[in-house]
Write a protein that binds this DNA or RNA. Sequence first.
DNA 1: CTGAAAGCGCTTACAG
DNA 2: CTGAAAGCGCTTACAG
Lengths: 354, 354
Amino acid sequence: MKKTETELTGVKEIARRANVSIGTVDRVIHNRAGVSENTKQKINAIIEELNFQPNKMASLLASRKILNFAILIPAVSNETDYWIYPLNGIKQAAAEIKQFGVTVKYYFYDLDSKNSFNIAADELLRGEPHAVLIAPSFVEESIVLANKIQAMGVPLVFINSDLPNQENLTYIGPELYQSGKLAAKLVSFAIQPQDKVLTVNIATDLENNHHLLRKEQGFKKFFEETQKQNQVITLHINETKLAPVEKSLLSVLSTDPDIKAIFVTNSRVNIVARILEKRDRKDILLIGYDFLKKNISYLESEHITFLICQRPKEQGYLGIIALYKHLFKISEIEKSVYMPIDIITKENYQFYNS
Amino acid sequence: MKKTETELTGVKEIARRANVSIGTVDRVIHNRAGVSENTKQKINAIIEELNFQPNKMASLLASRKILNFAILIPAVSNETDYWIYPLNGIKQAAAEIKQFGVTVKYYFYDLDSKNSFNIAADELLRGEPHAVLIAPSFVEESIVLANKIQAMGVPLVFINSDLPNQENLTYIGPELYQSGKLAAKLVSFAIQPQDKVLTVNIATDLENNHHLLRKEQGFKKFFEETQKQNQVITLHINETKLAPVEKSLLSVLSTDPDIKAIFVTNSRVNIVARILEKRDRKDILLIGYDFLKKNISYLESEHITFLICQRPKEQGYLGIIALYKHLFKISEIEKSVYMPIDIITKENYQFYNS
DNA sequence: CTGAAAGCGCTTACAG
DNA sequence: CTGAAAGCGCTTACAG
């Protein structure tokens, strides 16, 4: 249970072979100034030869570094508990890497307020973090922030939605188009050729919700590609309260009684479920997004048949771990990590851990 | 970026407050013998008060421990590449914890040979590992091994299948019954009330394949519970070569032309896919298990509609991490971790990372 | 440009 | 039962 092959490696051995002090070796390892080109090369050669990997624990211990990670994500709101899941993932990762001197600071913004985003972003910058994870819900504002963070040379991770042309360390989140296609496939099983299908976007600010449209496109694409003859009807509802959604939806359903499946492009599928429940319309297959308590209860009662879910907890967890692995040089980080597209039903939700 | 609040905590501070040496503090922390009850209590009180958590990196560094993990899993065979995925997960975890002084040793056995299992198990024991992960495919033989390992006080993790009444640290793998139910639900969407459904077990040694029966039970249970009128027919084929499987299967299909869906209870679904492909029977919905290359290609060609998959890579990864977290006291380990039951289709398989 | 010394927070013999 | 010292493999001032 003891290490044996010490002495053969390590700064000491390098110093001995190069005939210098370990201080100089350290300078070379970390590329610090003040070493003659000559000894530098000599030392580097030995490092190569020994295939030397500095002992991270020792270096952490000696340097007494503490690293501050900053998190900027939406606050958990009354309307949706979605963001509790990424937050839980982040907290779990934070607990695990605490012992390596990492502290995590949280900044929350209101999904209904760009201003709250900007305020939180300013606070974050003032904290001078060593690494940042953000959910860039507001595109313009997020780009401004991302540019500042990247200018500081601070590694940045996006979760949940991506921002193009940034120099972020990685993106961890869903690929939307494909999830729409998958939804369409699931729907296609349960309907007859003459049935119609309805897609519903429920969001007040569709501008900042391009992602809903991506899902819709994927959904429609499936029906085109497979040459199904089912008509796909599209409905945008730019309100999120029950009453107006109900009004719009019922109007469409009465105009088109052949609609036998509804695809809701976000987690507000529970609103539609509630409406169908009131009218006792179990003949319509309902499919939507996200593992929220409200949605799960409708999965239970079979008003919702499928939920598509992209591991919100894992997004948070992996985001933090990516920053940790990068800063501690544990492994290389991929530029983007697309979460698996999970299908949740009444039969498997109890095994879905977030 | 420097730590500030040092001195307030740590063995030194405890020693100072208790008026003893840090050596004595260390003895108490690790419950070593040779400390008077009196000073022990005094020190423990201070530890409580300070909410002291020893610095793991320092302790690791000072103790120069190396930990050997032993892995016992089936070898990757020609017939199936299933076990490459757990192995990859294990290797990934091993790479990440290598820097903490963990080395991993692999022992492989042949799924067709209990003897090879016993030989590998003996070798493993001779290696005197500090932690063990096994896939206990042969029940009897695995129990014998598990008892020996547990008698040595060595933490033990099971992946892929569980063993009852053991004192293992944790089990990480699938819950089979529920996955069968889920398969039934998926099938139920695509069939008409008059259609029949076939479940197929393909395995030479059904005795050591109780798990197939569990899936079959779950599958049947769904049809009972939901009072579907579809007849569910059961077929056991105790051969794994194409020819005999083909013979059995075609015989059943010709007797019962109403069979419109087939549920294969393991990864050999590709054999059935091949048979259906040859006969160009795309009218039969085929569903089976596991993200194998062969299976995926039939998913692509739409001879297989659904694959159910339980994250083999993650099972390996999490198994190792559980041992690491246990030995390094990073967090408590749950007695069993059931993997999510994932549904793989042509539309989402490319995002499934194992 | 380089070295010698002190120290990170622990653990490990060894001496008493 | 307890303490003092050396050391883990690095990093950090400081001195030259």
